[in-house]
Design a protein around this nucleic acid. Structure first.
Lengths: 214, 214
DNA sequence: CGAGTGATTGACTTAGATCAATGACCGTGG
DNA sequence: CCACGGTCATTGATCTAAGTCAATCACTCG
């Protein structure tokens, strides 16, 4: 679930295999397609054909409210699937637009559902992915209830500290992190800078080290 | 999914049945249990036994970060299931505490998983529930990216307008809505009051009517 | 009847959004 | 090879909307 780069790490030794939830033959049945940056994969209201797996690049899921404001529901990247809910509904509920050049693989509804019927294990793996997503989303929502930027960063660090409990590898840019945390990039820069000045954290290129926990 | 009272409404005529996703016999196999207010159903780290369905009352899912701050991941009510992810992992990832007196029904992992293997339809229904939850959560997350309280309320109204496109039935209290929108209740009261004063909306007991859209 | 809670409004403060500017870096095309 | 456009990172100044604290009223429940 790489699109939630700061996700709660998947359980070790669980039966769920992040990267290989589909049997090879079904995977082969996927229909690949390339998209240019900005190209539309599907639009809200269109009939669903199936779910997509991102092979490379990024897809933005967006929704427009009545007044035309766009807002991003999700940014999916390589390895993610999008439109899982489309398996159970007849129309898409949001727009999918390529944020970069991208390759996607379409798995038609019928194929996937048949596979689920035939192979309970695959169905389970898929359910596990969904359940995992639910947890990650809840975590992010929880994050948003913290009002102070500093506490939000602390919360993020606490949740994403590696095995040693005090090193956090940043998945992407700070700007992206800011968006994920629901802060403006400026606010995040300032907060991080202050935390470092106060000796609470230490930064080295792509990582943040917790020095003194509060 | 009553705990997301303002959820995107389920697709009409879909194969998914919100209220009756389990076959009667499995449902009967559930183990009912009562909880007093404040009682702990399970704690983070405990071995998972299965998933719970709320029969009555409310359960809070909470998590404590390193510094002991509690935050609410979810408030589940009658009809909801909680700990879906527990089916696929060996320990619970958060605490579940009764927010009110409550009755819950436990479906042991083995029973559920066996049922899924035996009845692909049930598995599908469960997947559909999860997928639906994912969408609802994304919607709520999206909501949080809107900074202005007024716009947040507008967004909420736009998404939850009934069939007529201009009447929104409030599920619970305004205070609860405030929490769901990630606002303090005061901020919400004021915003709603101002919107009404400006003639943008009209309130009558449990509902809000969109008068003039902006 | 008092305790508890929701609804509401007021006053005050502040943290974060917003606008703005700058430097570093990177790839690209002429 | 270098200039140019684009993006990230960073910092400054300003402003305002929302959080916080506080008080009141209405209502319900035991």
């Amino acid at each position: 679930m790489s699109a939630e780069p700061y996700a709660v790490s998947a359980e070790k030794g669980s039966s769920m295999d992040e990267t290989d939830w589909l049997s090879a033959n079904v995977r082969a049945a996927g229909i690949e397609r390339s998209l240019e940056r900005g190209q539309v994969l599907f639009r809200s209201g269109q009939r669903t054909v199936g779910l997509y797996e991102i092979v490379s690049g990024r897809i933005r899921l967006v929704r427009f409210d009545r007044s035309g404001r766009e807002s991003v529901l999700h940014r999916a990247e390589a390895g993610d699937t999008i439109a899982e809910a489309s398996l159970f509904s007849s129309t898409y509920k949001c727009d999918a637009i390529a944020a970069t050049e991208a390759r996607v693989r379409l798995y038609p509804k019928a194929v996937i559902l048949a596979e689920f019927d035939r192979k309970p294990k695959t169905a389970r793996a898929f359910m596990a992915r969904l359940a995992q997503q639910v947890m990650n989303l809840r975590t992010r929502l929880e994050q948003r209830n913290i009002h102070s930027a500093r506490d939000r960063v602390r919360h993020f660090l606490a949740l994403n500290a590696g095995v040693d409990g005090r090193t956090v590898a940043l998945g992407g840019t700070l700007k992206e992190l800011a968006a994920d945390l629901g802060l403006t990039h400026e606010a995040l820069y300032r907060t991080v800078a202050r935390m470092e000045a106060d000796g609470e954290i230490k930064r080295l290129d792509g990582t943040i080290k917790l020095v003194r926990s509060v």
